[in-house]
Amino acid sequence: MSGIALSRLAQERKAWRKDHPFGFVAVPTKNPDGTMNLMNWECAIPGKKGTPWEGGLFKLRMLFKDDYPSSPPKCKFEPPLFHPNVYPSGTVCLSILEEDKDWRPAITIKQILLGIQELLNEPNIQDPAQAEAYTIYCQNRVEYEKRVRAQAKKFAPS
């Protein structure tokens, strides 16, 4: 494992614990031996107030490669969400998460999670990743928002 990646992720964890947006979660997972795995984080993004996503808490896994922060983490909703920019596998399609697009090593975990929260309610229809959600979003916004509200209710924190 890269010392650069681990040191950056340790800084990220410290900064997150000191200050993070209300309702968001970002925690490194534990290895079988109980030690912390900084390369694999369990996160959760709350649906934004005043949107059909409100009330939901959407679980996301963030996986970092050894060359982080040169390369972005892979962000994957578990379980996958109904959304035009979420692949059926759950992987998020967002330009700041793509090395050859808008990724920059200075982007923080907090910025990534806030960017994904923004994307939930403002899909990028130029870059669809899920045919069904994309089609319904474009053709029947009322039905799309109904499905999103049902999903938010399903993923409401207990």
Score class of each variant (00 low, 15 high):
M62E: 02
S70E: 10
S95I: 00
P46Q: 04
E143Y: 10
L114T: 13
C93Q: 05
K30E: 07
W16I: 03
E122Y: 11
F155H: 09
T51K: 05
I109M: 12
A106P: 05
K59A: 09
N140V: 01
V27K: 13
K59Q: 11
C138H: 08
L60M: 12
F155P: 02
G90D: 05
K48M: 10
W103N: 01
L97S: 09
K74D: 15
F155C: 11
L38Y: 13
N31F: 09
C138G: 08
L6E: 10
L38G: 02
L57N: 09
S2M: 05
P28E: 02
Q111E: 12
V92W: 04
A150C: 10
L97V: 14
K154P: 01
E78T: 10
I112R: 07
Q139C: 10
A129C: 04
W16S: 05
L114A: 13
P84W: 03
W41Y: 03
E132D: 14
V25D: 10
F22T: 01
T51Q: 14
D33L: 04
G115K: 00
K146Q: 09
N31D: 05
A106F: 01
L94F: 10
S2C: 15
Y134N: 04
K146Y: 12
G3Q: 05
K101Q: 09
V92P: 08
E118S: 07
Q130R: 10
T35V: 03
K30T: 07
Q11P: 11
Q130M: 02
S95T: 09
K76A: 15
K76D: 15
C75F: 15
H20G: 01
S158V: 11
M36C: 07
F82M: 05
R104E: 05
G115N: 01
T51S: 13
G115R: 00
K101A: 15
A10D: 00
Q151R: 00
P79R: 15
M36H: 05
R8N: 09
E118W: 08
L119H: 07
I112T: 15
S7M: 14
K153T: 08
I112E: 04
I45V: 15
T29Y: 15
P105M: 09
P73G: 01
T29S: 14
E145Y: 12
M62A: 09
V148E: 02
A133T: 05
E118D: 13
E42V: 13
K48V: 05
K153M: 13
Q151N: 07
P73H: 02
G34W: 07
A129E: 01
I4F: 08
L60I: 13
P32D: 15
V92A: 09
N31K: 11
V92D: 06
Q111W: 14
P69F: 04
G115D: 01
